[in-house]
Write a protein that binds this DNA or RNA. Structure first.
Length: 571
RNA sequence: CGGGGCGUAGCGCAGCCUGGUAGCGCAUCUGGUUUGGGACCAGAGGGUCGGGUGUUCGAAUCACCCCGCCCCGACCA
């Protein structure tokens, strides 16, 4: 491809509204443009990268035995009514009526559609298992789209759905997909980590997320330094060294206008870990929708709201209002676990604790010497705290550390969560009607593009891995002497004939401009043709990251082939 | 939706406080000189100052409303 004919609108300055490096670079290097909040154009360079990402994913999915199909973006409301998610999915599901007044929505995911399809065609266990996938646009009306491709409203996802006659078969496919995902992210050359995950709004039993490690990641993951354990903090469990204090009398003390855990600890001169922090939540969804619960953790811990939601069987939880706190006998800022009329849930780390300071449920007062076993009636203990650094691993006792990650894939063992309501039934080996079990497996294709840039960049721009670069080779001709033009033209066509993806910068620009643009765009290998070397029958060639070396014009194609080939073989 | 910030030429910004009809750098176009790391000279084009209403002789500037964008929280591939 000739640069002069390609639409690559590069920018000198960082766009003011881009925050993370991938967003800035993809915009500046002319890969994407914003259309509206969370919705982007993929320009020619961006599309080329997308296609390469897709082809690796396709390759591995096909090799793992899955088959590709394509489902629609527009979905009928009935399907969502049937699965029960019309109500549950919430405002993220973009709904609309067509001209006939028919309830429709834009597909944020495709469990309903695939179940509908499979339920119509599935008769016998002999048709199982099967794994169907697509690479397609999704739309989720995100509360807050941000960071460019990282969290768009419209995005591209590879989603696969598998159906099975029994649990064992599902487990085997889950493992199969897990392994395929590891191969995919390895082929991209990414630093990634599979972690145990909460199943979120999709539901199901088992789930793992695949995270690309990056400081700009929106997720926090906990991992053990000594063993393989890793989990999203929404789910991570860990042991903590609990601070202990002697058993003492229960006392009420004045703490005028001292409310936060830090301030109370300072004011009373006690270790913040010997504080008991009480948070009051309202339950959203589920059997106890609307009811209020009190939750206690140590002063230096945070309540993990996802864990809490699971414990109380809620869709989610929200902090209670002052009035709601008062309704259970609490006083905002001074809430404690004693004499509350609501359910009181305590984190395991508080079981048997003594000598604690806590809110007194009186204005401007706390209690000291609180003894959980002695002073709290009807306490229930659960894992409710968020794992933090300094905790130890429940499996091996090793130290837990936290990292930031970008979630680029997730696998779910869904069981019959969808197949039951959607009536995906078949006749089993005994001739009985049976519900299929299901798994689903997603990879965020467009998000991956951003995640890769997060890991592959430097001060000058993007630094694509060879397998994903929009072009493998950038050919830069310098000056406009006929010798340079002719040599460039001939090298360009010889490279093309050899099957190498080459971008020839034939523009009438000064060398500096060309170098800067190529480094910004991030092509992995460069060839420079200039009068200086041409006089000795040479051009320069080299990887973006290294120095270029002189190469005889006659050898350039074979040199490029031998440089590029071994790298491609590794992948 | 709650909290903070912003909206002036394609991009990055100044002007606003203290009203007088818009400016800088980059980019673009023309001519010339340049040509191994974002050139130089000369000239040119491009803006209903996010939108509306109001105050005023006069509004980019002041007030109110709306819209859009970005950042922090709840969501997820």
């Amino acid at each position: 491809m000739r640069y002069s004919k390609l639409f690559i609108p590069t920018l000198r300055d960082d766009p003011a509204d881009a925050e993370v490096v991938s967003h800035k670079l993809l915009l500046r290097a002319g890969y994407i443009r914003r259309v509206t909040s969370g919705v982007y154009d993929y320009l020619p360079l961006g599309l080329r990268v997308l296609r390469k990402i897709e082809s690796v994913v396709r390759d591995e999915m096909n090799m793992a035995g899955a088959q590709e199909l394509q489902m629609p973006m527009v979905q009928p409301g009935e399907l969502w009514e049937k699965s029960g998610r019309m109500e549950k999915y919430g405002p993220e599901l973009l709904r609309f009526k067509d001209r006939h007044g028919h309830e429709s929505c834009l597909g944020p995911t495709h469990e309903e559609v695939i179940c509908d399809l499979v339920s119509r065609e599935l008769r016998s266990y002999k048709q199982l298992p099967m794994n169907l996938y697509q690479i397609q646009n999704k739309f989720r009306d995100e509360i807050r789209p941000r960071f460019g491709l990282m969290r768009g409203r419209e995005f591209i996802m590879k989603d696969a759905y598998s159906f099975h006659a029994d649990e064992d078969c599902l487990a085997a496919e889950y493992k199969n997909m897990f392994d395929a995902y590891c191969r995919i992210f390895t082929r991209f050359g990414l630093k990634f980590r599979p972690v145990e995950a909460d199943t979120g709004s999709i539901g199901g039993s088992d789930s793992h997320e695949f995270h690309v490690l990056a400081d700009s990641g929106e997720d926090l993951i906990a991992h053990c330094g000594a063993c393989e354990y890793a989990a999203n903090v929404e789910k991570a469990v860990s042991n903590r060294q609990a601070a202990v204090a002697d058993q003492t009398e229960l006392n009420m003390v004045d703490t005028p206008a001292v409310t936060s855990a830090e301030d109370v600890a300072d004011f009373l001169s006690v270790d913040i870990a010997l504080l008991l922090k009480t948070m009051v939540y309202r339950i959203i969804g589920g059997a106890n929708d609307g009811s209020i619960v009190a939750v206690c953790v140590r002063g230096d811990d945070q309540v993990q709201e996802i864990k809490l939601a699971h414990v109380v069987g809620a869709d989610s939880v929200e902090m209670a209002t002052d009035a709601e706190i008062a309704s259970i006998g609490g006083v905002t800022g001074f809430v404690g676990p004693q004499n509350l009329s609501s359910r009181i849930l305590l984190d395991h780390s508080l079981e048997g604790a003594t000598g604690l300071a806590a809110g007194a449920n009186h204005q401007d007062a706390h209690v000291t010497g609180l003894d959980i076993a002695r002073d709290i009636t009807s306490a229930e203990f659960f894992d409710l705290r968020q794992t933090r650094t300094g905790d130890t691993c429940v499996h091996c006792g090793g130290d837990i550390a936290l990292s930031r990650g970008i979630e680029v894939g997730q696998v779910f063992a869904l069981g019959t969560r969808y197949t039951k309501p959607m009536e995906v039934l078949f006749q089993d080996q005994q001739g009985k009607r049976s519900v299929a079990t299901m798994g689903c497996y997603g990879i965020g294709i467009s998000r991956l593009m951003a995640a890769i840039v997060e890991q592959c960049n430097d001060d000058a721009g993007i630094s694509w891995p060879l397998t994903l670069a929009p072009f493998s080779v950038g050919l830069i001709s310098m000056g406009k002497s006929n010798a340079v033009l002719e040599a460039s033209e001939s090298i360009y066509s010889r490279l093309k004939e050899a099957g190498i993806d080459v971008l020839w910068d034939d523009r009438k620009e000064r060398p500096g401009v060309k170098f800067k643009d190529f480094e910004l765009i991030g092509l992995p290998f460069q060839i420079v043709v200039g009068d200086r070397g041409l006089n000795d029958g040479q051009v320069e060639a080299g990887w973006r990251k290294n120095e270029r070396r002189p190469v005889p014009v006659a050898d350039i194609v074979s040199v490029v082939m031998s440089e590029l080939q071994p790298v491609e073989m590794e992948n």
